[in-house]
Computed example of a mutant assay.
Amino acid sequence: MTRQEQETAVKAAVSLGEAFRRGRNDERLGRAMDEAARQNPWFTEESLQSAISEWGRLLNEEEINRWVSAYALPREKKDVALVLAGNIPLVGLHDILSVYLSGHRALIKPSSSDTALINYAAEHLMTANPAMAANIEITAVPAKGVDAVIATGSDNTARYFEQYFKDIPALIRRSRASVAVVSEETTDEDLSLLAGDIMKYFGMGCRSISLVFLPAGFDIRRLIRALEPYHGYISHHKYVNNYDYQRAMYSMTGGHGVYDTGFLILAPGDTLRPPLGALSYEYYDNPERPARFVMENASGIQCVAWEGFPGGVRFGMCQSPGLTDYADGEDTMAFLSSLA
């Protein structure tokens, strides 16, 4: 890939960002959103709008050029298989753009949970830049005979991917969760931002906060009040089934310190991946406790909402990653640049 070819690819990505910023005013995107909602009941209008808005924010010429200019162009084009996740809308788009903008050929296996939007994005890039349309292909099964693979899945599927693609360069991602640390200085406004980090996309993203550390003596009712705007989730039939099940389970165990908000269970403990419909929390006396937990569990943590902590972000930012906030902390563009 030459720099000139990369510039045309960047323009295609910018065009996709412009479509995202138009939202439902873009007729083709609106149809894809409708189809995505029919395919996956978790993809509510709120979730779709949120994901599309985030991508519209990111895909501008300045941001994209700042991102790609930091990497050397590969010496030759490689076929890269992409096995995408589908837990939140467009979660696999970053991998597609990484391969496309690095000049390789992307053979994309979308998740069955997110085909409409991924197909829309792929087709938009091909239409916007016909000269590189052959660099994008949608496949029904994970491709073999490729030069490299980027695959995302659960811990169990990751082991399968490692075996399936054992003979080629592979970037395999596993399940991750995110953590927040509240301090004595945390305001109610901060807690409202944290509530979004917890509840956005029904808490199904790897960047969704699933464990909150609270300072000793903290009034947990403040957090419960901050979560209240998401009470409407109880009307979502799939979410309420999960919540009702968790409420029944915790009711039978009669656990001390369990709070039922009416739409989310707050359960004491440091479980990093509580079930859907539940949030883990733990009180700490010394900030060394959450710091030690984060360091000891770094391989399973995606985002740390703790301003001032190395690599931490402010409340409200976990669900708004930048182009260089790579999944699992693995630099996708560096991996692609290294392919010889």
Rank of each mutant, 00 (worst) to 15 (best):
T2P: 10
R3K: 13
E5A: 14
Q6H: 05
Q6D: 02
K11Y: 00
V14D: 03
V14L: 08
L16F: 10
F20C: 15
G23R: 01
D26K: 04
R28M: 03
R38C: 07
N40D: 01
F43G: 06
E45Y: 04
L48T: 01
Q49R: 12
R57Y: 11
E63C: 09
R66S: 14
W67P: 01
V68D: 01
V68Y: 01
Y71G: 01
A72L: 12
L73A: 14
L73G: 01
R75K: 15
R75I: 09
L82M: 11
L84I: 09
L84Y: 08
L84P: 08
V91I: 15
L93W: 02
Y100R: 09
L101I: 08
R105Y: 03
P110Q: 08
S112D: 10
S112P: 00
A122L: 13
E123G: 11
H124N: 05
L125S: 07
T127C: 01
A134Y: 11
I136R: 07
I136Y: 04
E137W: 00
I138D: 02
I138C: 11
T139K: 14
T139S: 08
V141I: 07
A143V: 13
V149P: 00
I150F: 05
A151M: 10
T152D: 11
D155R: 13
N156V: 10
A158E: 14
R159W: 02
K166I: 07
P169K: 09
I172P: 00
S175C: 06
S178M: 08
A180S: 13
V181Y: 08
T187C: 05
L193Y: 08
L194H: 10
D197R: 13
Y201R: 01
F202G: 01
M204K: 12
C206V: 10
C206Y: 02
R207T: 02
V212N: 02
L214V: 09
P215C: 03
A216W: 08
G217H: 07
L223W: 05
P229K: 10
P229A: 11
Y233P: 13
S235A: 14
H236M: 04
H237K: 12
N241P: 00
D244L: 15
Y245F: 15
Y245M: 13
Q246I: 07
Q246V: 06
H256P: 15
H256Y: 08
T261R: 05
F263W: 03
A267K: 15
P274K: 04
P274M: 07
L276M: 13
G277I: 12
A278P: 13
Y283I: 08
D285V: 01
P287G: 05
E288K: 14
R289Y: 12
P290F: 12
P290T: 09
A291V: 04
A298R: 14
I301H: 04
I301D: 02
Q302N: 10
Q302A: 05
A305F: 05
G311W: 09
V313Q: 05
V313F: 02
V313S: 03
R314L: 12
M317N: 12
S320R: 15
P321V: 12
P321W: 10
Y326S: 10
A327E: 03
G329Y: 09
D331H: 04
A334V: 07
L336H: 01
S337A: 15
L339F: 12
